[in-house]
Nucleic acid binder design. Sequence first.
DNA 1: ACGTTGTTTCGGGAAATTGCGAAATGAACT
DNA 2: AGTTCATTTCGCAATTTCCCGAAACAACGT
Lengths: 129, 129
Amino acid sequence: MNSDSLRPLADTLKVLAHPVRLRILALLHAGELCVCEVAEVLGLAPSTVSEHLTGLRRTGLVREWKVGRWVHVALSDDASARPLLEALWPLMAGAEAELSRDRAQARILRCDTCDPVACPPSRTLQEHA
Amino acid sequence: MNSDSLRPLADTLKVLAHPVRLRILALLHAGELCVCEVAEVLGLAPSTVSEHLTGLRRTGLVREWKVGRWVHVALSDDASARPLLEALWPLMAGAEAELSRDRAQARILRCDTCDPVACPPSRTLQEHA
DNA sequence: ACGTTGTTTCGGGAAATTGCGAAATGAACT
DNA sequence: AGTTCATTTCGCAATTTCCCGAAACAACGT
């Protein structure tokens, strides 16, 4: 009568079960970003993105660290995160059009940031137009 | 600014993101059952199980068909369901103790049902004790 | 010290989810 | 026709999710 041992997996899947968080994972699959870049690409309030990221961090799929004033985000390279992430990419194949557009916008924001520490990443997409 | 193309995958994952529905999938991995058997094994109200099953059916992971008075349920053998289901079993490995207990109870309910059509599956677990 | 900027936490309102019992449906059996 | 039993639908309360703006933090620059 108890389904407690499946709770951890269910909780992780619940975090995955949101279009924005899937988009974030796909974005990070192409490389690390800072929180404000993610917010700009997704067109969401920074506070919203921050909350999505705390969810993702709780699953262990994503890691964050401070770089100066910014918080950088990347996929976890932990062995325990691998199976789930690797299972995920093929399932997202159908959204490739949108995902590559996201990646393109992220590249625009980072077009002149050879050194991720030195270069403030906060430019908006309009400034680059 | 639109994350619509990931909506279908997110919706499917949202259905998976529940301990009871994961348990149902694992149960069906061992063979087909009827709704009342699932309810008995899980210790949940039939209406609750029915609602979980409509969710699972909507994802295409599960198929149902009527057999006399009963509704039988099984995993879909559709090709589109395969990748997700195959990705799922390894993720549930940690809950094997509970899942095998579920399978054992299902076997008890079915212990004398050689012919799934002829034999009423509605016996409670107490009747078998 | 002060202001600026990136990030998080908090408060709140709209919407979705979960579980159940009660009532409605459907299919068998008498 | 009437009964029984498996299942679904409905109504409802409790809980959670989602997004935001405002306020609080944190780290840099002057």
